[in-house]
Design a protein around this nucleic acid. Structure first.
Lengths: 141, 141
DNA sequence: CTATCTGCAAATTCTTTGCAGGACT
DNA sequence: AGTCCTGCAAAGAATTTGCAGATAG
C-alpha cells in the first residue's frame, strides 16, 4: 500500500474520492479479475456517483503505473487485477465450463525466449492463456 | 485445398462467389495475419460488392471449420490466418516497433500442461503471445 | 488559485443481427 | 422450389473523448 501511494505521488496523481474507491475495490478483490463494469458497481457502493469514464481512466492510470495488470478475456473485454510483486509473471487458466480464472505461476518460458534471443528478437514480455476445465468442472464431467 | 473443400462440403456450406473471394484472399496471404477490414479490401478486388457482414460471417465459418485461426491482437481486434497443419500449435511474436507478427513453433508448454493436469485441470488449448522487437527493429535501436 | 479531475453524453471502433431480396443446387 | 446467402443499415458492446463545471493541493 505504501508502495502504491508512492507510485501515485510520483506522477502528480490526485488521490480523489473516486480513485480511492477504485483502489479499494481492487485491494479488496486481490487475486480476482474484474471487468470495468464490475469495478463500477463495487466502486458505487463507496462513491455513488462515480461514472464509467472515471473508472476506465483510473484503471488505465493504475495499470500504467503497474499497480494493476490489465488483460484481455473473452475476446473482447479487459479485466484488471491487483499486481502483486511475488507473481510478476503469471498465466491464466480460463475454465470453459464455469468461467473461473485461475493462475499458474512459473517462468517456463525463459527457454523459448532465449531461443528467440538467438534469432535476433528482443522479447519484452509474454502473455500465456490456457483454456480448459478447472478441477471442479473437470470432475463433474 | 482439397481438404478445405471437403470441410466446406461437410457442413452444407455453399461455395458462393463471395466466399471464394475471401478464401482466395486467405490463401494468397498464407502466413499473414489479416483483420476483417483488410480481408474486405482485398476481397473487393475479386468480388466488388461484398460487404463487411459477409466477410465476418465467412471468416467466422472458416474459423469454426478450422480452416482459419482467429486470434485477438492489439487488444481489440481479431486477426485471421490460414491454418496450416504443420504448425498446429504456434505462437505469436508481436513487434512493438513495427507491428510485425512473426511466429514461433514449438510445444514447450506440455510440461506446464501436465503440471496442471496433476492439479486436476483438463487443458484443451493454450495461447501464447510474445511482445518485443523483431530482429530488424532490434538492430536499428 | 489553477491544473487536474469528474460526470455526462456523444463519438469511436469492432462485431453482430434483422430483414427483404437474390442465388445456389 | 426451397433453403441458404447477401448487402444494407441499424443495433450492440466495450472503450474513449470533449466539455463545462467541480475540486484537490
Amino acid at each position: 500500500m505504501d508502495v502504491i501511494n508512492a507510485k501515485l505521488r510520483e506522477s502528480s496523481y490526485r488521490l480523489t474520492g473516486q480513485r480511492k474507491a477504485v483502489l479499494n475495490v481492487m485491494l479488496e478483490n486481490k487475486g480476482r479479475h474484474l471487468s470495468a463494469e464490475e469495478v463500477l458497481w463495487e466502486a458505487r457502493k463507496i462513491s455513488p456517483n462515480i461514472g464509467i469514464a472515471t473508472v476506465y481512466r483510473t484503471l488505465e492510470k493504475l495499470a500504467s503505473l503497474e499497480v494493476l495488470y490489465k488483460s484481455m478475456f473473452e475476446g473482447n473485454k479487459y479485466r484488471y487485477e491487483l499486481a502483486e510483486d511475488e507473481k510478476h509473471h503469471h498465466h491464466h487458466v480460463l475454465c470453459l465450463a464455469c468461467g473461473l480464472i485461475s493462475e499458474v505461476s512459473g517462468d517456463l518460458l525463459h527457454e523459448l525466449e532465449s531461443d528467440l534471443d538467438e534469432q535476433g528478437y528482443k522479447i519484452i514480455d509474454h502473455e500465456l492463456k490456457f483454456y480448459g476445465y478447472c478441477p471442479a468442472c473437470n470432475k463433474k464431467k
